[in-house]
C-alpha cells in the first residue's frame, strides 16, 4: 500500500499549526515524525488519518483521496495506537484487544469465535497473552501500551500509526516497545508511522523521518539523511552530536545533547 500526504496544512482559526506537509511511504517502511513538544505531532497524526480535516491538501491511500473512501474501509487497513495514558476503563485486556475487530464487523454484529481467535493471536504476537484477564485500569503504562498495540494488530491492518508509543515508559519498556515495532514492520511487513521526541529512537528504527519545526517548515527524507546535527538544532533548539559506537560488530548511533541553544529561544 502507498500512503501519502500532499501539501497538508492545518490550523485553528488564524493559528497555523501545520504548513505544507508532504511525504509518502510504501510497503513496510517505517517513518518517524520528530518534533518538540507542542509542535503539532499528534495533530499531524490525526490529520493524516482523517480524524481532523486538513484545511488544505489531502491524504491519499493508494493514490485515492482518503476522504473519498468509506471510513470503515480505511480503518480496516490503518490502525491507530493512541498514547497509553492513565484513567483507563476496566475492560480486561482480551476485551480491549477484541475491540480492534470493530471495523470488520457490521453495526449490529457481535464478535464471533473467529474474532476471538484473532484477538488471542494478536496478543500472542505482542507477547501479552498473560494479561488477558487483567483489567486495563490496573495495568502499568507499558502493559497498557502493549495491549493497545495488540488491539491495533487484531484488526489485521496494513499500517500502524503510533502516537509516542515509548513516552512515559521506563528504560526497558521503551526498548521492548521499539523492538516490537521493528519486528512488526520488518518481519510482519507492516508499514508504520510513529511520533517521537527522541531523535535516537527515530535514528534506530526509522527508514524515513519527517521533522516538524517551530517555524512551520518541515523536512522529509530518509532518516539517516535528515536526522543531522544541524536539523536537530533547528527542531529542538539543542546542540547535539551524533556519535557512532560499535559493539560486537553492530553500529549504534547515539544522539548526545550538548547544550540548549539560547539564541533560538526555548
Amino acid at each position: 500500500m502507498r500512503f501519502e500526504v500532499k501539501n497538508g496544512s492545518f490550523g485553528y482559526g488564524n493559528t497555523k499549526i501545520l504548513q505544507n506537509i508532504s511525504f509518502s511511504l510504501e510497503g513496510n517502511s517505517l517513518m518517524a515524525v520528530l518534533g518538540s513538544n507542542g509542535v503539532g505531532k499528534t495533530t499531524l497524526l490525526k490529520c493524516m488519518m482523517g480524524l481532523l480535516k486538513w484545511n488544505e491538501g489531502e491524504t491519499r491511500l493508494d493514490g485515492r483521496p482518503l476522504s473519498s473512501l468509506r471510513p470503515s474501509d480505511v480503518w480496516k487497513r490503518i490502525a491507530y495506537v493512541p498514547q497509553a495514558k492513565g484513567a483507563a476503563l476496566s475492560y480486561t485486556a482480551l476485551e480491549m484487544v477484541l475491540m480492534g475487530r470493530s471495523a470488520r464487523l457490521g453495526l449490529f454484529a457481535q464478535p464471533t469465535e473467529e474474532d476471538l481467535a484473532a484477538a488471542r493471536e494478536a496478543m500472542r504476537t505482542v507477547g501479552v497473552e498473560f494479561l488477558k484477564d487483567k483489567p486495563c485500569s490496573r495495568m502499568s503504562g507499558g502493559e497498557l501500551q502493549m495491549v493497545l498495540i495488540a488491539r491495533a494488530l487484531c484488526g489485521g491492518p496494513e499500517m500502524l500509526i503510533l502516537d509516542e508509543p515509548e513516552s512515559n515508559l521506563d528504560f526497558k519498556n521503551q526498548l521492548v516497545i521499539l523492538e516490537l515495532i521493528r519486528v512488526l514492520s520488518k518481519e510482519k511487513g507492516l508499514a508504520a508511522i510513529i511520533n517521537t521526541h527522541y531523535p535516537a529512537h527515530a535514528l534506530k528504527l526509522a527508514d524515513q523521518a519527517l521533522i516538524l519545526n517551530r517555524d512551520g517548515v518541515s523536512v522529509f527524507g530518509t532518516a539517516k539523511e535528515v536526522i543531522t546535527e544541524a536539523n536537530m538544532k533547528r527542531a529542538f533548539s539543542v546542540y547535539v552530536r551524533i556519535a557512532k559506537y560499535q559493539y560486537e560488530g553492530v553500529d549504534y548511533r547515539s544522539v548526545i545533547p550538548i547544550r540548549i541553544c539560547k539564541s533560538a529561544g526555548v
Binding site: 480524524l51 470503515s72 480503518w75 493512541p82 475492560y91 476485551e95 475491540m99 470493530s102 470488520r104
Partner: peptide, 14 residues
C-alpha cells in the same frame, strides 16, 4: 464497549 473509549479511539476503530 467501544463507545466508552476516547472519541478519537472509537472513530479509529471504524
Amino acid at each position: 464497549n467501544i463507545l466508552s473509549l476516547q472519541e478519537d479511539e472509537a472513530r479509529a476503530l471504524g
